[in-house]
Design a binder for these strands. Sequence first.
DNA 1: CCCGGTTATTGTCGAGATGACTCTAACATG
DNA 2: CATGTTAGAGTCATCTCGACAATAACCGGG
Lengths: 246, 246
Amino acid sequence: MDTDCPPAERRWPEPRPAGYDPGAFTPFAVTVDIVLMTVVQRQLKLLLIRRGRPPYEGAWALPGGFVKPDEDLATAAARELLEETGISTTTGSLRQIGSYGDPARDPRMRVVTVAYGAVAVRLEEAPRGGSDAAEAELVPVAEVQSDRLPLAFDHRRIVDDAVDRLRADLETTGVAHSFCPPEFTVRELREVHEAILQTELDSGNFQRKVTGREGYITPTERRAPTGERGGRPATLWRAGRPEDAE
Amino acid sequence: MDTDCPPAERRWPEPRPAGYDPGAFTPFAVTVDIVLMTVVQRQLKLLLIRRGRPPYEGAWALPGGFVKPDEDLATAAARELLEETGISTTTGSLRQIGSYGDPARDPRMRVVTVAYGAVAVRLEEAPRGGSDAAEAELVPVAEVQSDRLPLAFDHRRIVDDAVDRLRADLETTGVAHSFCPPEFTVRELREVHEAILQTELDSGNFQRKVTGREGYITPTERRAPTGERGGRPATLWRAGRPEDAE
DNA sequence: CCCGGTTATTGTCGAGATGACTCTAACATG
DNA sequence: CATGTTAGAGTCATCTCGACAATAACCGGG
């Protein structure tokens, strides 16, 4: 979020290496920002936090913050997400989107931010469990990309890049699963695809495609409870191959 | 390259914003590293520089260096490439690969590096035109990926990521063109694909594919000079649509 | 219990993409 | 002019994918 300034625990690892001159290069602040996405009500949404101080005071921004002295970038992203939203993720599930370092992107000082994409399973409303008490909200990605909801800093561009990346990953990886609970119906999986790609998919063709893809999903013996208006009960599936314990 | 320490021109932009405490966060060094790739003799090669000082003194490393106080990341990458190799690129042709910030990746201090991919047209041998006099060499990517040629820092991983990215981009973008001169034959384009994908492609099918792809390449009236062993002269093509002036 | 409504899943069919392969065109050399 | 070489078009079986049935399995109401 480029906001909060944690106390400097120590400026440099000690002992300072011989022959190293701390004044010989430009110091940067390095932050991480997280684009946490979820699909709810057939809509792709992302988590935003309202800034409590200038610049961009009162504006919506991505959760994030400074990387600590002995922390990996992905670790910092997972920590910030936990602190600000209470959502726990593994560093392996975070995907690096890119880095943003325009000299003017933060009016206070020179900041380079590394953006990470994360996925939550059907997050209905913004969590309040974060230790950093701050107003959080889940907003549709369309609200941001249509400029109806402006963001602080260059976060709009980060969101665009994260969504582009998510769309590309949808075809080539199994990201779609991480939007669903451990057991899910093909319909749920299809609605995730539809929300992300902003398109309608033929249910029959989609079924054929995902069930035919080797090692993509495996059926269970269980059925999902039927809906309000009846209909044939859907098979519950799990991600990956049969052996996979995921 | 994580090596050279340029003089700090100024540590922070002046005037220092009110309410900003320079000790309140951890300062990082931010560098850029460039993976410059080219296809020569049907081989994908990349440019390396021999380090002249510890750590990893004498080891091969990617060209790169510190980002300056008022410089964008991509601008820094283009500048470092020019300084160290004499090769001039536009920031638009640089592709950001990712950022690497393991706390232990540089034994001297906390460094985050942003890696960029760049492409040169049939670079036969390592250029000596850089103002930073350093030993440079073009080595086959296979030498690096087979561990026959170890690299400094985490540059091996950066190379892996850059090559993965290049392979993905090959299908979805027009990167392949940038390995070729403005006018090229379909054969040259195919050999670029083959070198990058490490596979043999059927010449007829490849011809059909690239000529059939709308707006991908356009024929000229000119023919390439025939080879040593004769053969029908090949049509010269240009990248993009007919109107494009590229 | 039978019937229409609803959803899940399978099947059919045609258009286009792809891989293996053949065939022709246009040059060179002797 | 025969022969070798490369460029590029053509052939054909296979695969993929979208549009569109058809069938299966549940609901609630008569």
